[in-house]
Amino acid sequence: MSAKTAGGAAAAHPPVHPQDHLLRTDRLPHIWCTGCGIGIVFGSLMSAVMKSGLPLNDVAVVSGIGCTGRMAGYIKLDSYHTTHGRALPFATGLKLTRPQGKVIVASGDGDLFAIGGNHFIHAARRNLDLTVICVNNLNYGMTGGQQAPSTPFGAKTTTSPSGSPDQPFNFCALAAACGATYVARWTALHIRLLTQTIGEALAHRGFSFIEILAPCPTAFGRRNKIRNPLDLLRFYYDRSVVKNKISPDQAVMDFQGNLVVGKFVDVAKPTWLDGYRQVNSGQVGEWPEVAAEVPIPEKHLLGA
């Protein structure tokens, strides 16, 4: 059958996309621009959720504000589109009242790391059992392309018309330093690896963080010489180099050179709820509980 006949059939019986059962199809087409990478990440997330075998009634998606924040509005699960930057604390309350469920936080770089930065560092520190999907498009897309905590030095945005004077965050290094127990980064074109990684993150117990470098041709690419969606998608992918298990502070994104992607951190640590249960069941002794054999350093030797 040719595409033409498939299309012809669409008029009478619209074809059913394999992910339609997870989509609020009555809201499609979605608001994301032509060539925006968020849709790819969203598809990857839905694939990973289906493959995880998690009961769908026990999966919730929480978003903040911004382009990526609209993900919650298109997924046909219990989904919460909260205030700007506050997806993580909202998700904290949601998760802790139903620990048996899985909470996915999907939001953008500006939402999670600028206005929501304080919540991010504390959610990671607590190792809350949340999966955080951060679509990094290097700017604020929803408001038309302003500089974000991810905008590379010198990149043009509407609020940095001569180039951004700021240095960007390395989100993966930040996440790892704060205590995230699973940290990975891909570009939007690493679809199979991304889906696999999201699957691992969903199975991970603790704070998992995945950053996805995604094209925003309309707001970011247009002002930075790469206005074609395909060129921008390819630009990120072609410059990426996979370095799994590298220390996250070495996993730099150098747009003049290479963009390091891969899975950087995957360790098991007690979650916040594990700790809460432990201390409240009296299993933790008085602080400080110093083992007798720990030698006390001699000050004069340290100072020498």
Partner: peptide
């Protein structure tokens, strides 16, 4: 929109499905 010009060559790899941001 795209159309299949060589439909007989499709090997059902699903990559178009995965890379399409629009479902």
């Amino acid at each position: 929109f795209p159309k299949a010009i060589k439909p007989e060559l499709c090997v059902n790899c699903h990559f178009c499905e995965a890379v399409c941001p629009e479902f």
